[in-house]
Amino acid sequence: MANSLAISGVNAGYGSVRVLENISLSVGHAETVALLGTNGNGKSTMMKCVMGLLRPTSGTITAEIDGERMDLIGRSTEEIVDLGIALVPEGRRLFPKLTVEENLLLGAFRKSARGAIAANLDSCYETFPRLKERRRQLAGSMSGGEQQMLALGRALMSAPRILLIDEPSVGLAPILVQRTIDKIKELKERFGLTVLMAEQNFNQAVRIADRGYVIVHGQIAFEGRDADELNNNELVRKFYLGL
């Protein structure tokens, strides 16, 4: 059953500040798509629009979940999570004063997810054995890498079909960035996820991405149909890598 995401002509902003201008992008079934761009170009805003945390001023966002096509704009975040879309927020945004297990349980707060909570918790601990060891520990007391694993685990607790990951590399040491990116690839294959990943770390993101978009000042500046196209593009080299 196909799971995909299509964003078309989206404009969005905060108050009178326009952040996204006529953004269109798509994520096909079982694809990993990277949304590349430096700080302040609108990557997180795009994620918020998909999750219903911010309402676009115009444009459409549709998701296809298990073959059923649905309009996401106008739905509440809870409904969108219910449909099978989950977000790993920027900077992890864990609940630092709650335990690891409580953090995971909060990923499955919705009634629809609670039925399978035991199975999802098991599969989460299986994927991240470290979290099982630390399940009684406060989330805030773990290392950055472990926290990122917990953030990924929490998002998986709602058994999503489409996973949005906002800047998984933020605040992590280079070796951990590499491990996190590897883990995302592993998760994607293991659970058959469709992934949209916003990332600044170009080289790491391109390593696992099937395709990518470069976002500059709220507009899609370039669309790369594969890693090579992204790597060998003048625009990317000039605006993004500063080469």
Binding site: F95, K97, L98, G107, F109, S158
Partner: peptide, 15 residues
């Protein structure tokens, strides 16, 4: 407790 700890994160997670 999730609201107390980080309300926006709770909202983003479907709480």
């Amino acid at each position: 407790a999730a609201i107390r700890d980080d309300e926006q994160a709770a909202e983003a997670g479907g709480v």
